[in-house]
Design a protein around this nucleic acid. Structure first.
Length: 286
DNA sequence: CCTAGAACCTGCGAGC
DNA sequence: TGCTCGCAGGTTCTAG
């Protein structure tokens, strides 16, 4: 569910409420919530014990909590429906509570991983010298990363024989963009989602990246996008960016630029929302 | 090597 | 009321 802005909101919450606390005990309530851990969920839980959490980091939609004085980090991906919540001990267990982490202090709060669809999960990995969990080395930098290389992204688009929305969702090219922000950025850039990337000029690519950054920063400033209670920050509160969406979910509503009714099209087992007038389909389909 | 599509899950609302 | 269907913000694996 969550894309870069939502994950960053969660990361900030963890930085405030979880960083620098020492794990007393971890409890795995659903085995699938622990990912890629061959030794099993109990081993995963055991390995967190006694370690102090460092400053949380994020790349794209992944976030991780370094274990201080080790070369390992707890990596988290929220998938479609995952939540990381900081809850008082006495708060009743959520229906889809998967993992609970208690701390060795008197703050009376615990960290909970809650996930309805179980596409998300936590895992434990070695940290590479650049501070990244080894298993996400293939994930590209995200557009809010100061070291994101706009020119290299443009050259990659030129090389690909694919369409622009596919490229925006390809986490090895640019990370953090999902279905919502792809549609929003394409609407702002007046680009159809099936435009072939090989036709992109440098100004067009740079303009699109500008829109991606603008829409993500705007969402970040109001706490992210929430359509329902599934996406929340660590305190369980929803963001407000759904009120500012220009494309996503606006089927039949007037385009905010030209008043033409917006359309929804099935696309890769999900949906694309666009304005048929502002975002003309390319003449030749790839 | 590259790209497109299916698979992985659970729950909700619409329509019958 | 209760059933089925379609849909949901992501990643990864496989087939071609």
């Amino acid at each position: 569910m969550p894309e870069l802005p939502e994950v960053e909101v969660v990361r900030r919450g963890l930085e405030r409420w979880v960083a620098h606390r020492t794990v007393a005990e971890a409890e795995v309530l659903h085995p699938r919530a622990v990912r890629r851990h061959l030794a099993g969920a109990d081993d995963f839980a055991h390995r967190l014990r006694g370690h102090r959490i460092g400053t949380p980091s994020r790349r794209g939609k992944y976030l991780w909590l370094p274990l201080e004085d080790t070369d390992q980090s707890i990596l988290a991906h929220l998938g479609m429906s995952g939540q990381l919540l900081v809850q008082p001990h006495e708060a009743p267990d959520e229906k889809h509570l998967r993992i609970r982490v208690r701390f060795a202090d008197d703050l009376q709060t615990e960290l909970r991983f809650v996930d309805q669809r179980t596409f998300g999960g936590l895992s434990l990995h070695d940290t590479t010298p650049d501070g990244l969990p080894d298993v996400i080395a293939h994930i590209a930098r995200d557009p809010l990363d100061p070291l994101f290389d706009d020119e290299a992204f443009h050259q990659a688009l030129r090389r690909k024989r694919t369409t622009i929305k596919r490229a925006l969702l390809d986490q090895s090219l640019i990370s953090g963009v999902g279905n919502i922000y792809a549609d929003e950025a394409l609407w702002r850039a007046r680009l159809h989602y099936e435009r072939p990337t090989a036709t992109f000029t440098r100004p067009r690519t740079f303009q699109l990246l500008g829109h991606v950054r603008d829409v993500m920063n705007a969402a970040l400033s109001v706490g992210g996008t929430s359509f329902d209670s599934l996406y929340v920050n660590v305190n369980g509160e929803s963001g407000y960016f759904d009120r500012s969406l220009d494309a996503y979910g606006r089927t039949g509503l007037p385009c905010r630029r030209c008043a033409t009714p917006m359309r929804r099209r099935p696309w890769m087992n999900r949906s694309s929302y666009y304005c048929p007038k502002c975002q003309r389909a390319p003449r030749v389909m790839p």
